[in-house]
Computed example of a mutant assay.
Amino acid sequence: MSQPIIDVLGTGCKKCHELEANARAALAQLNLTAEVNHITDPLAIADCGVMRTPALRINGQVVSQGKVLSAAEIAALLPR
C-alpha cells in the first residue's frame, strides 16, 4: 500500500499548527509514514470545497472542517 497523503488546510493560525502536530502524532502512534502538506493559500483551500478551517484532508477526501481533531481521532481515520 502506498503512503497516505495528509493535507492540513488553513492559513497558518495556532489551530492549524495544532492540527498538523496532531496529525504527525497520529502517524507516530501508528508507526506510519505519510506525506504531510500544509496548504495555506485561501484560493487553494476554497478549491478543495473547504469553507471552515482548520480542515484535514486524507488522500484527497476532506474528513474534517472547522475543528482541531485529536491525534486519536486522526489515527482512527488513517488507512492501515
Rank of each mutant, 00 (worst) to 15 (best):
S2Q: 14
S2C: 05
S2E: 13
S2I: 13
S2G: 04
Q3A: 14
Q3P: 01
P4A: 07
I6Y: 09
D7K: 15
D7H: 00
D7V: 07
G10L: 02
T11S: 15
T11W: 06
T11R: 12
G12L: 04
C13V: 01
C13P: 02
K14Q: 14
C16S: 06
C16H: 03
H17N: 14
L19Y: 11
E20F: 09
A21F: 11
A21D: 15
N22Q: 15
A23I: 06
R24D: 06
A25T: 13
A25M: 01
A26P: 08
A26M: 08
A26S: 10
L27D: 00
L27R: 09
L27H: 04
A28R: 10
A28L: 02
L30D: 08
L30F: 10
L30R: 15
N31P: 11
T33Q: 15
E35L: 14
E35N: 06
V36P: 01
V36I: 11
N37R: 14
H38D: 04
H38R: 01
I39R: 04
I39C: 01
I39N: 03
T40H: 05
T40R: 10
T40I: 07
D41T: 08
P42V: 11
P42E: 04
L43A: 15
L43V: 14
A44T: 05
I45Y: 05
I45M: 12
I45A: 06
I45R: 05
A46W: 00
A46M: 14
D47F: 02
D47Y: 04
D47K: 12
D47W: 08
D47Q: 12
C48F: 03
M51Y: 03
M51S: 01
M51D: 06
R52D: 10
R52M: 13
R52H: 12
R52C: 07
T53V: 15
A55V: 11
A55Q: 01
L56I: 06
L56C: 00
R57P: 04
I58A: 02
I58E: 09
N59W: 02
G60C: 05
G60N: 01
Q61R: 02
Q61D: 07
V62S: 09
V63C: 11
V63Q: 07
S64R: 03
Q65V: 02
Q65L: 10
Q65K: 12
Q65H: 02
G66M: 00
G66S: 00
K67S: 00
K67H: 01
K67D: 11
V68L: 00
V68H: 10
L69T: 00
L69K: 09
L69Y: 04
S70K: 01
A71Y: 01
A72K: 14
E73V: 07
E73R: 03
I74Q: 04
A75Q: 10
A76Y: 05
A76M: 05
A76L: 12
L77M: 13
L78M: 03
L78H: 12
L78T: 03
L78G: 04
L78Q: 07
P79A: 11
P79E: 01
P79S: 08
R80M: 08
R80E: 13
